[in-house]
Amino acid sequence: MIEVADLWFTYPEGTIALRGVSLRIGDGESIAIMGENGAGKTTLVKHFNGLLKPQKGTVLIDGVDTREVSVAKLAKKVGLVFQNPDHQLFSSTVEEEVMFALKNLGFTSEEIKERTNWVLKFLDLEKYRERSPLSLSGGERKRVALASVLCVKPKILVLDEPTIGQDAKQKRKLGELLKKYQEEGNTVIVVTHDVEFASKYFKRIVVMAKGKVIADGPPNKVLTNPTILNESSLTPPQVAILSYEIAKKINNFPKDIVLFNDLLQEVITRVKR
């Protein structure tokens, strides 16, 4: 469980990135954090594994104050995958890349082997085991970066902008994988600008603007609310626009559908009637 209470953070040269964020994230949740460029999303998630320590307020991970433990210790519980895979890949093979975190965190060689095998299989990377990560394509490098954190099997997995530069198929795969991981009882948190991705795969949307959380709720409540969207430079997902536009003209047509299948079902039942 993550408990953030009245968190403030200012960067050394004076940017106030967080202005009193409070947030509770329970075990096994699936959350998308959204909001305009510079809203403070990345700054917030860097607090979850202790990379940044609260200047005011607190961040508790399973009841433990992040100020009192090292990043390495928290890394076993909270896995943070950065936006750009090139910021972390350095090994000569994919396998070594994955083993890096496991070695650092003191797993036994048995465990290291087992977890490496598991994660390469889970992310469909077995065929690249001996390849140099730097020789892979952008999408593949992103998967290796994910593997290099996921191998620890963190109870809380956080991904910063995982969909940038990914094509539709890769996105779909990633969405499914994250869903699967969450359904195994883990918490999955993504930071993303992609409203389609967020509304499709995540159950709770946290919207940030100017260092504050301005909305928090299920996609069909948050991503269809014009005031919230306006304040945070977001746009509604396509399905929501459609349902909203139809609802304007058709009596009691729901105006807050965000999932494609729900919309399709609604239309079909009405047509058949």
Partner: peptide, 28 residues
Amino acid sequence: DAQMSRGLELQRGGLTQKIRNLIPLIIP
């Protein structure tokens, strides 16, 4: 930050280890 999230601790180990700790930073 990215490497620390994977458990890298710069202060760990003796002198040679400390130098080796820099590799994951320098290459990227």
